[in-house]
Amino acid sequence: MLLAGLVLASTLGAAGQAAASRAVPQRAGATPQVLARTTVRYAKGFTIQYLPGYKVLTILSPSGQQTTATRYALVPRGRAHPAGFVASQVIETPIRSLVGLSSLHVALADFLGASDVLVGLGSLQYVSAVPVRQRIAQGKIFAVGDGRELNNELLIAHQPDLVMATGWPGEGLRKYQTLQQAGIPVLLNSEWVETTPLGRAEWVKVLAALLDKEALANQKFDQIAREYERLAALVRQQTKRPQVIVNLPFKDTWYVPEAGNYMTQFLRDAGGAYHWAGVKATGSLPLTVEAVAPVALTADYWLHTGTLTTKAAVVTQDARFAAFRPFKTGQLYNNNRRTNAQGSNDYWESGAVRPDLVLGDLIQILHPALLPGRQLYYYQKLK
Results as ranks from 00 to 15, higher is better:
Ala369Val: 07
Gln243Val: 10
Ser284Arg: 00
Leu57Glu: 03
Leu57Val: 14
Val204Tyr: 08
Pro326Gly: 13
Thr31Lys: 03
Ala69Ser: 14
Leu359Ala: 13
Thr339Ile: 10
Leu150Tyr: 02
Ala209Thr: 00
Ala281Gln: 04
Arg37Lys: 13
Thr58Ser: 07
Val86Phe: 09
Ala109Gln: 01
Leu210Gln: 04
Asp212Leu: 03
Gly100Arg: 07
Gly283Pro: 01
Asn334Arg: 08
Leu108Lys: 07
Glu290Gly: 01
Gln159Ile: 03
Gly84Leu: 10
Leu108Ile: 07
Tyr255Ile: 02
Gln26Phe: 04
Asn152Leu: 10
Ser88His: 03
Thr253Pro: 00
Leu357Ser: 15
Ala4Ile: 02
Ile245Ala: 07
Thr58Arg: 06
Tyr262Gln: 15
Ser63Gly: 05
Ala322Lys: 14
Ala312Gln: 10
Tyr228Cys: 11
Arg325His: 11
Met263Gly: 12
Phe324Val: 11
Asn336Pro: 06
Gly45Asn: 04
Leu124Ser: 06
Gly272Asn: 13
Ala109Gly: 01
Ser61Phe: 02
Ala233Arg: 10
Ala296Gly: 13
Leu382Arg: 12
Gly373Tyr: 10
Val186Thr: 14
Lys328Asp: 08
Arg148Val: 04
Glu229His: 15
Arg320Val: 14
Asp212Ala: 06
Ala43His: 03
Thr305Ser: 11
Pro372Ile: 09
Ala277Arg: 14
Gln33Arg: 13
Gly351Asp: 11
Leu8Pro: 00
Ile184His: 15
Gly278Leu: 08
Leu173Ile: 14
Asp116His: 05
Leu211Val: 02
Asp161Ser: 08
Ala281Lys: 10
Leu234Thr: 11
Asp346Ala: 15
Ala4Pro: 05
Ala319Leu: 10
Glu290Leu: 04
Lys383Pro: 15
Lys140Asn: 11
Ala233Glu: 08
Asp161His: 09
Arg174Thr: 01
Gly5Val: 01
Gly53Gln: 01
Arg133Ser: 05
